[in-house]
Design a protein around this nucleic acid. Structure first.
Lengths: 340, 340
DNA sequence: CTGAAAGCGCTTACAG
DNA sequence: CTGAAAGCGCTTACAG
């Protein structure tokens, strides 16, 4: 493989001149620039990334820590990954991907060995055990998901509280008085999946204020269990006229469950979910939903991370905590409750 | 960040001795080893990956080229990615992930700049335009998917021809005489998605030999179009008693379509799909299927790749083309055809 | 406008 | 069993 030394020799200049001609960091005569460019083409020269990283202390690589937990729904994670990866590429960065169960180990490996310029953490928990490690690392970090302590990192998340309120308000306005909310499994909450109770608490409070009944329940994250869960809930609350779904697996299972009960939305039951539009299309879900905007969140996280990496943020610029306002995408699955 | 020089100083030895003590590449007195290890702990030393790569010409990173094409079904791709990523980690490698549309560019970037020791190509097409670039690269490559020309790379794929035969034989044995095969969209074939026609041709031939009718058709890769496609096919071939599905989106849409027609499998229609068990669980698909084994294929590709990278393969060891034999997972969706 | 030299942090022949 | 030195391929102050 050709090195910058080869380029310099072919172009008849010094290595430093060749380097400057390529980086544009100092003025170069037109003649020399042409000769260097010709040499690069002739030799098919590409800089060695390791050597460049060693010299500049910049790798142009971002570490992406995904997490595929047993009790969450894998296809939902993919959307965040793609948002991060595609944005990174647009900004000239590559992605070092870690999918291993022990995120702490992966994080330490990447940061300590200087393989990356910055880190994106996905699916961040309330007391995420990766955070202390990230805070000690010399590289900046951006999170998707809201932890209890946001010190030292930039944080991006859907405003789940607003989402919970929005769901309840929407159905209240249509005249519903008894709702069921199906959340992620309880152990997601126990593990620190704060988004579950952030939405749930806000929904509960919004219902209380409006004097309507909300049954907050958990559902499994797997098929076919979650289908049974849904049947159980519909049996348990026969007077409920609205269903709020904060659980991707439950959303995916709902069409089958409604078919089995010969119910349809919104005629028999109003339904509002919380998932991405991409997810809705993949699973052919006909329910109105709060857009979870994974691509947008991934994009925001990377943009801010790159600003920090490249020092445009200013070393002492305070860290941000930014919420995406939920939007309700109307797919026509809500209406006034059935009169009976 | 501490360097090997710091470790050497604290341990009171030379940098080379510190390095050897850590690599174990030459014998070190017990005393020196202890001092070096203590220094490493005290300083929290981790080798700088870029510097090591520069010195050894080994990055311990594998490039993974995923491809999320408009007309294919994203969640299926994720399984292959996880198989590759998890196996790589077990073998001590990290993953540099490229998801951009222009795989050629990503491939060139990774290989030319020596960011990776080897490459895994996913979703390889008949005449994949990434292959010429991979062949010219100094790093070895492993493919998941069978191209027309396998020269210079190791290739792993499901035996789609066997899969097609197996599907037809299975239903033939149960007494079916008229079948419909739903493949991926026609433009997947046109783009070179060889697995589509490999399965289709073998199924067609197996049907011909047995004197049974097989209607080979294409289906969309998107919801809700693919649902309409399925309705259309069931309308068009009312005497067909068996449905073969080589199209993930169609498989995901089928439960709803059957509900809408008030049909059930296997009472009214026998169904055999071709997807992974993981996929079946995610989408709650109750149909018997040919296991597409994405995790296993990813694992095989990485194992062989690492053998080549680490020179255990022998420089002149011929490249392999290895097919995974399809297995039918019985979920009870096939039976003798309805008599009427 | 250009060149010679130092340095980034490792590994590994070479020498003792 | 250990050390001094060279070298991997870049970038960038320093000097002219």
């Amino acid at each position: 493989m050709a090195t910058i030394g080869d380029v310099a020799r072919v172009a008849g200049v010094s290595r430093s001149t060749a380097s400057y001609a390529l980086s544009g960091k100092r003025t170069i005569s037109a003649d020399v620039r042409r000769r260097v460019e010709a040499a690069v083409r002739e030799l098919g020269y590409t800089p060695n990334a390791g050597a460049r990283a060693l010299a500049t202390s910049q790798t142009r690589v971002i570490g992406l820590l995904a997490q595929f937990l047993e009790d969450e729904f894998a296809p939902a994670m993919l959307q965040y990954m793609l948002g991060v990866s595609n944005t990174a590429r647009e900004l000239g960065y590559d992605i070092l991907l870690a999918t291993e169960a022990d995120g702490r180990n992966a994080l330490r490996r990447m940061t300590d060995s200087r393989m990356v310029d910055g880190i994106v953490l996905l699916n961040v928990a309330e007391h995420d055990d990766r955070l202390p490690i990230l805070r000690e690392a010399p590289q900046p970090g951006a999170l998707v998901g809201l932890p209890a302590d946001c010190a030292g990192v930039d944080v991006f998340d859907l405003d789940f509280e607003d989402a919970g309120r929005l769901m309840v308000e929407h159905l209240h306005r249509l005249g519903h008085r008894e709702l069921v909310l199906v959340s992620q499994p309880e152990h997601v909450v126990e593990r620190g999946g704060a988004y579950v109770w952030r939405l749930q608490n806000a929904a509960t409070e919004a219902a209380r204020v409006r004097g309507i009944t909300l049954h907050a329940e958990f559902g499994s994250a797997h098929q076919p269990e979650v289908g049974h869960d849904l049947h159980g809930l519909l049996d348990a609350y026969p007077r409920a006229t609205g269903l709020l779904i904060n659980n991707e697996a439950a959303a995916a299972a709902l069409p089958t469950v409604l078919h089995e009960r010969e119910l349809s939305a919104p005629a028999d039951l109003s339904v509002v979910g919380r998932y991405s539009d991409e997810f809705a299309r993949t699973f052919s879900l006909p329910y109105s939903s709060i857009e979870s905007a994974p691509d947008r969140l991934g994009r925001m996280a990377v943009r801010e991370l790159v600003r920090r990496i490249e020092g445009q943020a200013g070393a002492d610029e305070p860290h941000v905590v930014r919420f995406v306002s939920p939007e309700l995408i109307d797919r026509g699955s809500t209406a006034a409750p059935r009169e009976d």
